[in-house]
């Protein structure tokens, strides 16, 4: 049995010719944990001195092979590779990206289920002829592109949900089917169907933009002066309780307020108080009008 040790790798070679005399010599320190620290100096393209510190662990990998195999490893190269140095030549040999390959009994079954998943297929079919619908004005564009998005509150949530149902997502036979969609791994589930939506009250859906605004503790303030600042509004409303969010609509170009704002309170009680007190309040030569962003339904 013959043994072969790992050949010297060309990638470990240092560029010797770039080291000039006024650079400190490279240092090699042996660490306690068996690794080596190599500190080398060089000049970069802009003439700056660069210090490179590398920690390297050398592992000698010994492999016992058949003597015939060992002999073949020492063969000289020929043909197109005759002039290649020892070791893999980078122009012919590269290492590919990592591939995870785990044989599994259920591989095919999983795949089949995914293909056959009736919900996914049904959803695709239904979405095929579904048109984009704005939640604010019901026009044929995305809500974000709505020309009224800054001046109108979204259409009634309940109505929107009904529209969704009509649009086709909701007419699954029963609520558990929707839950089943959420549970299926790997396939895309629209945010609206994630979790047990059927049993969720409007107030429990956090995170979504409209969900928060339509929370029962949000006030709509209109007839706000052009000169108003968010901080001023916050100061005014903070008197009634903790304010979680202040939104003052501003013109993108001029930076002036557009005349309306939304104030969200942490507590609905405070919001009610604020609504009563601030409606009709004079603020910068205009009289504010304060109402709930959404009528309590």
């Amino acid at each position: 049995m013959a043994t072969t040790t790992k050949r010297h790798d060309w990638a470990d070679d240092e560029d010797v010719d770039e080291v000039s005399t006024d650079l400190p010599p490279p240092q090699t320190l042996t660490n306690k944990d068996g690794t080596k620290t190599i500190i080398s100096y060089r000049y970069n393209d802009e003439g700056q001195k660069v210090k490179t510190t590398r920690r390297v662990r050398y592992i000698t990998h010994t492999e016992k092979v058949n003597p015939r195999v060992a002999e073949r490893k020492a063969w000289g190269k020929f043909g197109d590779s005759a002039r290649d140095p020892a070791g893999p030549a980078p122009d012919t040999t590269t290492v590919g990206e990592n591939i995870i390959f785990r044989p599994s009994v259920n591989w095919r079954k999983d795949q089949k289920e995914e293909d056959k998943d009736p919900n996914a297929q049904a959803m695709k079919d239904k979405l095929k002829d579904k048109k984009v619908k704005c939640r604010i004005c019901n026009g044929e564009h995305f809500t974000a592109r709505c020309p009224y998005k800054d001046t109108m509150a979204p259409a009634d949530e309940a109505a929107a949900a009904a529209a969704d149902l009509a649009g086709g997502m909701g007419d699954e036979p029963a609520a558990p089917a929707a839950g089943g969609v959420g549970a299926k791994k790997g396939s895309y589930v629209p945010p609206a169907l994630r979790g047990d939506r059927a049993g969720t009250a409007a107030g429990e859906r956090l995170g979504s933009k409209f969900g928060e605004r339509d929370d029962l503790a949000t006030l709509r303030v209109t007839n706000v002066s052009e000169m108003a600042e968010e901080q001023e509004l916050r100061d005014m409303f903070e008197r009634f309780g903790r304010v979680t969010r202040v939104f003052l609509a501003k013109d993108r170009e001029t930076g002036l307020a557009k005349g309306f704002a939304f104030i969200s309170f942490a507590d609905r009680e405070d919001a009610v108080k604020a609504c009563n007190k601030m409606d009709g309040f004079g603020f910068k030569h205009l009289i504010l009008r304060v109402e709930f962003a959404k009528k309590a339904a």
Binding site: K77, F78, G79, D80, S81, D84, P88, A89, T92, T93
Partner: peptide
Amino acid sequence: NGERLGTY
């Protein structure tokens, strides 16, 4: 290691 030994 994928090193090319030669070509024919």
